[in-house]
């Protein structure tokens, strides 16, 4: 079964990069342009893993996670936070928000794909 990933980022560049990278790795990708769009798309379609930016208009990445974790369906979906921050502060914040994992931008294609495979079982 194809693994479906929802990528939420307000940067068109990052969205395009993610889409290319993930599609090349055999994932099915849909994208959303901000937190509100992301949560809406998440609720409308089946998603195996969410990748979300933190700093976005309308609703930030932690808001997205909160909505997913308190939402009606699929609330234990793995959510990867994509961010330029690194270190302990990020880890705490991501952890608090209920993120499954975090990837620091700029990300390494192979590392990202390895993490996604591990978190979705698409080994």
């Amino acid at each position: 079964m194809v693994t479906r990933i929802l990528a939420i980022d307000d940067s068109r560049t990052i969205r395009t990069l993610l889409t290319q990278t993930l599609q090349n790795a055999g994932f099915e990708v849909s994208t959303a342009v901000d937190g509100v769009d992301g949560v809406q798309k998440f609720q409308q379609q089946h998603t195996d893993l969410v990748i979300t930016d933190v700093n976005m208009p309308n609703k930030d990445g932690f808001g997205v996670i909160a909505d997913i974790r308190n939402g009606p369906t699929n609330r234990t979906v793995p959510v990867l936070v994509l961010t330029t921050e690194s270190g302990a502060a990020l880890k705490d914040r991501a952890r608090q928000a209920g993120a499954t994992g975090w990837i620091v931008k700029p990300f390494d294609d192979d590392a990202l794909i390895a993490v996604i495979r591990r978190l979705t079982g698409a080994l």
Partner: peptide, 15 residues
């Protein structure tokens, strides 16, 4: 662990 909600209204423009 309680998930932290951040639903503060950010009046950024939508794409």
């Amino acid at each position: 662990v309680e998930a932290q909600t951040d639903t503060s209204d950010r009046s950024g423009k939508r794409a």
